[in-house]
Nucleic acid binder design. Structure first.
Lengths: 185, 185
DNA sequence: GTGCGCATGTAACTGGTTACATGATTGT
DNA sequence: ACAATCATGTAACCAGTTACATGCGCAC
């Protein structure tokens, strides 16, 4: 269900076609709920059947392009969903799992993977920091719109999450270093 | 594929039956790769067909209970997997998504959900801290086995991840508080 | 022998992933 | 006319989820 509500959120901000949505997802909502165009088309079709969104009347042309907008029922469903109760879903992370396996069969190139992930997380973090700088300048936070402050909090989640990974990977690589020293002193 | 390797890891530590594995998952590997008994039975069957594990010969009795052990092929596959290259999978988090939606349709009970999650993350964190205290006492880290130190790093990931969530939720609730003050000064 | 808990499983469904198909528009 | 790109979609697959089925051994 979450993807459907993510889509409604995006459509409320701006009526869009499937591909446009996909692209907008790639650089905002998709940071914590990624989706491919196939998924998005599937859900758009379902949402339309459910009567939560509709294609904008008028121009269906321009390469078969269809623009969708949210209907009142869709908005109501989103409002309800915002307050819905749901437990946090446990994460599934293969890198940690690899390290766990290494505890049993030995470190055999995990460090290289750790370094690769460190690089990727660094890139992602600096991407987020760039967005923060350009979209949420420090001054003006007080007189910003409420929605903007909330969007900033969402971005903060991304920033803190990436920072967490970087810290953990650093801590882990340092320990693996010590581990190696213990074996060849 | 990850679940299969998680299972091999667990079986290497101790040959087990399906239900035993399920229970052990619930309080160790499952913290970052949860699995239900149905999933585990399915994968055990596949792993056996692939020739990576086998049922322990001898006693198949006691309520149809079957114990599995890892074969050399399975161990080799795990060693290879430990060093395999795979990008970090983006997270999907509904709570952040709800906040994102709230930026568009208004805060309507998200705070209650934030507080619920805060409680759950606190519980999870103290669970981890208890495990850390009992399984990885500070003294003796130096002369602990390598595997233990690696398992400790894995636990550290859990601890830091829960701490991240708590920090972010606190920051967010504080901001929502200020938000409310702005509306009714 | 009946009911309870342990243990192994099947079946149907949902959502995410990957690969491919089709048509329209735009630039050369 | 042709290729590149934009845009919408289908199909098959895989992993995780939920609900249910079945058989065994033990306690009462």
């Amino acid at each position: 269900m979450s993807l459907q509500h993510a889509i409604i959120t995006a459509l409320l901000e701006k009526p869009s076609s499937g591909l446009e949505l996909t692209r907008r997802f790639d650089r905002s909502i998709g940071y914590f709920w990624p989706a491919t165009h196939q998924q998005i088309y599937r859900e758009l079709a379902r949402l339309e059947r459910a009567g939560w969104i509709r294609t904008l009347p008028g121009e269906p042309g321009r390469g078969g392009r269809k623009e969708y907008e949210v209907l009142p029922e869709g908005r109501a469903a989103l409002v309800e969903w915002v307050a819905a109760e749901a437990d946090p879903k446990p994460i599934r992370d293969a890198l940690v799992l690899r390290l766990r396996a290494a505890a049993v069969v030995g470190l055999n190139g995990v460090d290289e993977q750790l370094r690769r992930h460190r690089l990727l997380h660094r890139q992602r973090l600096s991407e987020y920091l760039d967005i923060e700088e350009s979209d949420f300048p420090e001054e003006g936070e007080e007189d910003a719109a409420s929605g903007d402050r909330l969007r900033h909090l969402v971005l903060r989640a991304g920033i803190k999450l990436e920072s967490f990974w970087l810290e953990w990977i650093d801590e882990t690589l340092a320990e693996l270093e010590r581990e190696r020293d213990r074996q060849d002193p």
